[in-house]
């Protein structure tokens, strides 16, 4: 999957989980908080993203993920896990 394709898929995925935001209004710069995800919603979003993208969101680094771009960046830097 190239980076543009990944970006589209992550944005579509986040839009599917956001309660009131359309994918067309989400960019890499969008902050999760501004899309309606509080801190607990964000951990749930990342848990759901594990299944969707085959990546484990684990460790200290995960707590710093604030924007859509942060998530895309994290996925590109972590290879899919065998268990997912």
């Amino acid at each position: 999957m190239d980076i543009a394709e990944l970006e589209t898929k992550v944005i579509e995925f986040i839009a599917s989980k956001a309660e009131k935001v359309d994918a067309s209004n989400i960019t890499n710069a969008s902050r999760l908080e501004d899309l309606g995800f509080d801190s607990l919603d964000t951990v749930q979003l990342l848990f759901d993203a594990e299944e969707a993208f085959g990546v484990n969101f684990d460790g200290e680094e995960v707590r710093g993920l604030r924007s859509v771009g942060d998530i895309i960046d994290y996925i590109t830097r972590h290879p899919p896990t065998a268990s997912s």
């Binding site: 607990l40 951990v43 749930q44 848990f47 594990e50 484990n56 969101f57 684990d58 268990s83 997912s84």
Partner: peptide, 9 residues
């Protein structure tokens, strides 16, 4: 037990 993450809730 499968070494997977668990749902946050």
């Amino acid at each position: 037990l499968q070494n997977k993450s668990i749902p946050p809730f």
